[in-house]
Structure formats: structure tokens, C-alpha cells
Write a protein that binds this DNA or RNA. Sequence first.
RNA 1: GCUCCCAUCGUCUAGGGGUCUAGGACACAGGAUUUUCAAUCCUGCGACACGAGUUCAAAUCUCGUUGGGAGCACCA
Length: 494
Amino acid sequence: MVDIRVRFAPSPTGDLHIGGVRTALFNWLFAKNKNGKFILRIENTDELRSTEASTNVILDIMNWLKLNWDEGPGNELSKYAPYYQMERRDKGIYQTYVDKLINSGFAYRCYCSIKEVDEMRKNAQNNKLSPRYDGRCKNLTLIQIKQKEAEGKKAVIRFKMSNVGITVLNDLIRGRVEFDNSLLGDFVIMKSNGTPTYNFACVVDDYLMEITHVLRGDDHISNTPRQIQIYDALGWRIPEFAHLSMILGHDGTRLSKRYGHTSVLEYRKEGYLQETLLNYIALLGWSTENSQQIFTIEELIENFSIERCGVSPSTFDPAKLLWLNGEKIRSKNPDQVYELFVDWLKYTNNEKLIEEWDVNLLKKAIILEHDKIKILKDIPSLVGFFFKKDIEYNEKAVQKVLLSDKSKNIAKLVLVESALRLLNQQDFSSSALEQYARELALEKGLKTGQVFHPIRVAISGKTQGPSLFHMMELMGQNEVIRRINIAINKFFKK
RNA sequence: GCUCCCAUCGUCUAGGGGUCUAGGACACAGGAUUUUCAAUCCUGCGACACGAGUUCAAAUCUCGUUGGGAGCACCA
């Protein structure tokens, strides 16, 4: 049996978006599931738009997501290297096969200008025909070629498509798809500057890298008949193809900035976990028989199969991603959440927070608020008040709980009493504090809430937060009293 | 315009002739719990695009219509 070899072949012309990551993930899962090899190849033959920065972003994202490649950038000694197409071009790899195709009559030089080709296409469209190159340079004589060269014209190389019969794609996901050969024109495989085009470079590399399965987005379906004909012309075995359905944005077209982020990096910045992204994205276009939602990476690998990939496009749903991230964080223990948070702070250049904040206090605060954390970005707003010397009083909270006509006298009473009594509180555990607060309520004829709420706002500045007595216990006696006094001075001293 | 792909709750999906008064998950609504916000638990809302055909029987098969998407570059 041949070893499975798959590849992810992004072009570094912008941020890797969700769709790109999905393609990478499915290839990776397939390779892992089949014990095959996952190869990363950078298709940078678009000299105008490819950038090194974009390449680095892709590599960063792959690393962050832990979609580790068995071969690719960094494996320069591999027998399949290099993995950058421009380096492969410089080695003359594509030229070799272009020459072969020309010599065997499957490709030819074309001297038509871009303008000419454009006109051809427009004419065809006006006549309701399939837009295609009409093949006018197909049978140029040697003399004509010499003449064009003498005029200083530069040639592109076109592949001679068969124009009779059909080309059949047996797609692993979609089944049999037929293409009418008469509709497909001869296409450019090498630009006039000697750089191969996608359809050609892709075939040559997939062959040379011994790729067995091509998993890619279904936007490539219509490229496939061209590629199949190149394989045939070169006498190469055709790999298996599997075309994944597209991931759409909210508006039904593509992922847009307005709805969810285009770039995966944005999710990292917000504090989504790597495993959340992978789990969620796996669910877009793949499912199990029992519709399981939450998977560990291992489970994903174990269960993945091309057969269970869907054919219809799916829409990215940020709300579900958020829910899933909460689930993932809840499934961690507090120490792991702490580590994740620290890594995230470093990534977002906020590591000074770790220096300012007491680590032990932070770890305990995370335990208190663990269930509420949806994304790592939530943590500072959830527990930040523990660490700030100056309490940030939320105006609404203060108005409602401390200063409204209905509450102000009670709040003042509760705080003043507490400032005094807590000084003598021997046991500052949460249960003892609760007992204290309930007794105070009973003694003064108040409802428990009338005692609890003012204390909460006084010491945290807000109405929402961890369970009150755990919060007080964690803050400690001195700090609680200090904060209550601050509140008294601020709101009740005239 | 031409070609190809696709069509189950708002969203992701299960289901692939009878077990479907269509299952799960997110979201949404209500309730329980709670000192607050969450989390959790319970309940509810909610879909087979339409039309023909095949069949005893269609969400499921076929054709058509409509709708959506992609490709048609010296982009990938």
C-alpha cells in the first residue's frame, strides 16, 4: 500500500482566513488519521501579491494551531525540497516539464497580448459562448515564431487542451463530475517571465512530491479538468481529489470583516484557544453520525474521514465559536487556564500585567471566575478589580445600590457597621463572613440582599462579580476594610 | 453570458425509500437554582425551497423550476 501524502499549499497573498485553515486542518487530520505525511508548500508564484510577511503569518498560524507539517519550510534537506515554488522555479523544475510538453506537442508558444485575449473573451461572451482562448497561436510555423521574437514579443506557454470528449473527475466527496472538453480553452502554464502558473506548478509539484490525495476547496473544481489533462499529457498517475465545500460569511458570500473575523489571528488576539478553532472549524463541513459537537484533537484525528465530509456550503457562526471556547476553558483546570492566560498576555504584549498582579491571588481569582470565562480576554475585566489599588466604581452600580433614595441610608448603615465589626472578625473564611452578613441583616431587620449588595459594590465597584463571601475571603480582611472605608469616605462623608 | 457545484430549524448538522408527528448542538424565549453576573438543569420556539414524476410508500431516487455559491486571468 502506498503511503498517504497530502499537502496544504497556500499562496502568501494575505491573511490566512477560516477557509484556508479548514483546508489545512482537513489535510492534517486526514494525514494523521491515515498515518500519512502532511506537507506544507508555499505557492508564491504570484510575484505581485506574494509577500514574505504573509508567508510568516501563515507559518505563525500553522504553528499556533499546532498543525505541524512533516515536510515543508525548514526541511531543506528533504529529497522533495524546496517547498517554495519560486525556489523551485529558480531550479528550473517547471521549465523541464514545459519543454517536455512542447516537445511532445502538448504545449505551444503564444504571442497574443493580454488585450487580444481580453477581446477574444468578450466576443465569446457577447455571442453567449464559453469564453476561451481561440488557439490562434497553436500552429505557428517556425518562421512565424522567429518573426515574432524578432519583433521583441515575449511568449507565454499554453497547454493544448483536448477539445473533444469529456474529462471526468471522480471526486471522493462529490462523486463523478463531467466537463465538456470543447468548452475549455488552451490556458497559460508559464508566464512570459518564465514563472509557472498555478494550474501547472500545482500539478508538477504534486507529482514530484508524490501527493496521493488532493483535499482543497471546491472553488478549485473547475481547475481540475485542466490539471487532469496535464497529468495525462505527462503520463502521470492522477491523485485522488476531494473538494471541500466552501465556508461562507453571514451575508452568504465570503467571510467578511463585519461578521466574524477574516483572519485567524484576530481570534488568537481575542483569546480563543487553538483547540477551539480546530474543533469548531472541523464541524464546518464534517460531522459524525451522532452529531457530536465537542472533540479533543485526538478524537478529531481518530474520527475524521473524507467520506463524512459534506457537500453543501456552511456559514461561519461566531456565537457558536464563543460558546465552544467557554466549554474548552471550563474543561481545563485552573492552573491550565492560568498558563493559557499568561501565554495570551505575552502574545498581546501585556505581560507587564503578570508582574503587577500577584500570581497567587490571580490563580485563586481564576478559580472563582472560571465558569464565566468565555475568551481569555474576559479575564482582566472579570478579576482585574482584585488587583487595582484604586477601585473603579461603576456609576450605575453606585447610583442604584449606594446612593438611590431607597438605598442610601441602608447602604451607609451596612458599610459603617461592617467597617467597624469586620475589624474584630476572627474568622475571615467565606462561611464565617456569610454568617456575619446574615446576622447583621437579621439584627437590623434587613433583607440579606440589602446587606450583600452594598458591600459588593463598595469593595469591587460593580454589581456583578464572584460570589461575595469568597471574594471577600480572597481579598483578605485588611483590604476589605480598607475598601469599605474608601467607599464610606467617597460616598457618605459630606 | 458560459460551465460546474449546492439546497433539512436563524446557524452547524444527523438522517440516504417505510423505524420521521425529522434527532442533536449553537442562538433565542421561559422556568429552576443563586447575594449579583455567569455556569448548570428543565421546558419551549423552530426546518425537509417549489413543482412534477417513479413507488404500495419519498426529506431520502429522477427531471424541471427557483434560489445561493464558485470558476471562466501572463491570480492562486
